[in-house]
Simulated scan of single mutants.
Amino acid sequence: MTETHASTMRTPAGPLTILAGPDGAVHAAGFTPDAEALLGLVHPRLRAPVRTRADLGPVTAAVRSYLDGDLAAIDGVPVEQHTDGAFMAHAWRTLRQVKPGEPVTYTGYAELAGRPRAIRAAAAACARNAAALFVPCHRVLRTDGGLGGYRWGLPVKTWLLEHERRQLGE
C-alpha cells in the first residue's frame, strides 16, 4: 500500500498542511495543522496512511517561493484530485488558470469553465476543492465583489488576495 506524505509549514496566513502522494502530486492542502482532518477531503481512491515529513521537496520549495513573491511558483506543482463528475475535474483545471491579482466572480468562473449558467456548480467546485492554494479557489469572489466563503476562513482568503495584490504592486 502506498502512503501519503504530509508536511505542515508556517505561513503568515497560518499553518499550511500539504498532503502529497509518493510521486509528489498534491492531493490536499489547507490552512490547518491537522493532517488527519485534511485526509478526509481526499477522494477515497487517493487515501493512504499518512507519514509526516519535514519537507516535501519541490512542493515545499514552491510554497516558499510563492510566499516570497513568486506567485507563479505554485502553478507547476502537480495536483491530483478525483471526482465522480467530469465538470468538477474540468472546473478545477480551469481554476488553476485564474491568475493572481485577477480574481473572478462565481459567474465569471462558470463562464471560464464553459458553462455560464452553471454558477452553482462552479461554487460547488470551489467548496469541494481539497487542494487549496494550488487550485486557487481563494481567487473566486461573489458577484457583488464580496469575499463569499472559504473553507479555511475569510481572514486566510483575505491574506492570500492581499499578498497577491502586494506582490503585483497594486
Rank of each mutant, 00 (worst) to 15 (best):
M1F: 07
E111C: 12
P155V: 09
G145A: 11
T105V: 12
H43R: 05
A37W: 11
L168K: 13
T2A: 13
H27Y: 06
A13I: 01
G40I: 02
A25C: 00
T2M: 04
T8M: 03
A13V: 04
G145P: 05
Y150L: 04
G30V: 03
P100T: 14
T2G: 08
A118V: 03
A125T: 12
I18R: 05
Y150I: 10
L67V: 01
P49V: 12
A130C: 04
P44L: 12
A91S: 10
P103E: 14
Y106L: 14
R47I: 07
T52P: 06
G85H: 13
V98Y: 13
T52H: 15
H43T: 02
L38A: 05
T17M: 03
T94K: 10
V50M: 10
Q81H: 00
P15G: 02
G148L: 11
L39N: 13
P15D: 02
V63Q: 03
T105P: 11
A118N: 13
E164A: 07
T11F: 01
H163D: 12
V135T: 13
D23S: 11
V104R: 09
G24D: 05
P33K: 03
M9D: 02
A6Q: 05
L67A: 00
M88L: 15
Y109Q: 13
A62H: 02
C126R: 07
I119T: 14
L19K: 01
W92G: 11
L141Q: 11
T83Q: 10
G24I: 07
Y66N: 00
K157D: 05
K99G: 06
G14C: 00
T158M: 10
A61C: 04
V156P: 01
T32R: 03
C137K: 14
Q167K: 09
T107E: 14
P136Y: 04
G108P: 06
P58V: 01
M9I: 15
P136W: 07
R165V: 06
L95W: 10
P136K: 12
T52S: 13
P49A: 09
M9N: 01
P44V: 06
R165C: 05
A130Y: 02
G40M: 09
L168F: 10
L160C: 06
S65N: 01
G149S: 15
P58I: 00
W92D: 11
